[in-house]
Every structure is written in structure tokens, then in C-alpha cells.
Design a protein around this nucleic acid. Sequence first.
DNA 1: CCTTTACCCTATCGGATTAGTAGGTTTTAT
DNA 2: ATAAAACCTACTAATCCGATAGGGTAAAGG
Lengths: 135, 135
Amino acid sequence: MLSKKTKYGIKALTFIARQENGVKVQIATISQAENISHKFLESILLTLRKSGVLGAKKGKGGGYYLLKEPRDIKMTDVIRTLEGPIAMVPCVSLNFYEKCDDCPDEEACSVHKLMIQVRDSTLQVLRNTTLSDLV
Amino acid sequence: MLSKKTKYGIKALTFIARQENGVKVQIATISQAENISHKFLESILLTLRKSGVLGAKKGKGGGYYLLKEPRDIKMTDVIRTLEGPIAMVPCVSLNFYEKCDDCPDEEACSVHKLMIQVRDSTLQVLRNTTLSDLV
DNA sequence: CCTTTACCCTATCGGATTAGTAGGTTTTAT
DNA sequence: ATAAAACCTACTAATCCGATAGGGTAAAGG
């Protein structure tokens, strides 16, 4: 299940991407337009800023803006930042790999085999979808 | 993230599918071989029996066995039974559809658009993978 | 019949995670 | 100076997950 954090994050990015080039958007604006709790959204945008997707300007007239072109913002990056691993099981994750403690032999594991395929097909979609495809 | 319930369920089904045709397998046998809590596994196999994938026989010499050929057991069915929806968001789920309460217009929602694509690519894998592909 | 074996069912619980809340700090424009 | 906006830290209520406990019920062998 996709967390609300990720869901809201994608919605917010889409909202910002729809603005004229470089126009700054306040948290409150997005919060109202998309029905998102102001404080919760605040923490999400902060995370996205730290990951390098968004820039922010403090003070009056401040707000958030994209640091890259929408077509250069891949969904893989956004989701890994907000949600964490894309794989459904840590033992098939490329960026967040972890060994299963119950599984002695990964190669022989049926779940492993299946989830690699699911991961690859999901990755293909997310890698080829950018923010510009969603606006 | 895939729950342990689903993970264990798939492992157990694979284990059973590896037996000679029609041989019954006890909970304790799978539990030991796959490092799964006996009681937890019990509840999982019960769910799978109720969904019609497994049959069970009580009493001495009893156990669980497949009701269909491994190649006729699709991963979509197994995962929907144990995990629930395959879609990452209820508003794009085929079998467990639910409207998002924060989203006034699904067609205009960027998350909706993206998650439909993810769902479709995942479905294609799970529909074309059967238990026989995992043994 | 009677004991063993294994399936079936309900209830509970600790820990982790998630979504949201509260309150204050820092920076900027006017 | 003042208002507006992002920034930061900490907390909380609710939910879910994996596991556990304890018994009930049905079937097979002797």
C-alpha cells in the first residue's frame, strides 16, 4: 500500500510543476488545493527539498519550486525518497537490500524469484515515467 | 511491503507443490522446513483452504494438499487471498476498489494515473506466473 | 470405544509504523 | 519592526502486524 506521505508528495510535486516556470508555491496553497494537512505536507516538502528535487525560499513571498525540469524528475527517485524501497521484499531491493533472516538460500526461494519479476516490471514503469507525464 | 503472511503462504504452497501428486503435508513439516511459526502458519493454511486452493484432511495421517494443478494456481489469486489488493492505492484496485476521500476527481489525479500503470504491469507478471513456475 | 493426531477457531498482546498535532525558531520582504 | 513564510523537534493517537495462548472439533488407528 502506498503511504499518504508518498501520495501527497506526488500530488504536491504535480501541483508545483503546473506553475509558470520558477514561480514559488506556498505550503498553504497546496494544502488547500489538494486537501492535505498543512503540517503533514510541510514535513513532506522538507524531505523533498533535502533530496534535491525542490528548492525553497524562506520569508515573505517565499515558497517551493522545482530544481529540475519536470521531464528530468523520475518517479523512481521520488518514490525511493518518500516511500523507501520499491521492491516488495528487502531481499530483492536494489537500493535497500537486506537479507531475509528466515531464508537460508535466496536462489532457492520461490518468493524471491517471484518478487524479482514484480520489481523489474514496476521499475520499468517508474523509470520511464517522469513528472512531466503526470501534469 | 509484502506481509509475512503472504510470504509464508507462497513458501508453503511451493513446498506442498513439490510433493508427489496428492501426498498430504502436515503443518509441522512445513513449519520446521521453512522456519515459520507453527501457529501462524496454521492460520495461513486455513485461509488458503477456505479460498479453495488447498484441501485438508484431519486425523492421523492427515494434512494439506493442492486442489488444483500447480500450473492452474495463479499468483494473482494467492496474493489477493492473503495480502488483499494488488494495487498500491484503493482507487485503482480492480477487486477492492474504494474511492479516495481526499480526491475530488480521479481522472485528474496524477497519483491515480501513475498507479494504474504500476498495477497493470504488476498484474501482467502475477497473472502469467503460476505455482508451477516457482517450484 | 478411546486415544491420538491434526485441523479449526477466538482472543489477546507487544512492537512498529503511520498520520497527524503542537509549539517554537529562523529567515526574508516590506 | 512586523508579518509571513519555511524550518525543526518532539509528541501522540490510532492502526496494523506477527506472534502467542488455549482450547474445541473431527477423523483415523487400535
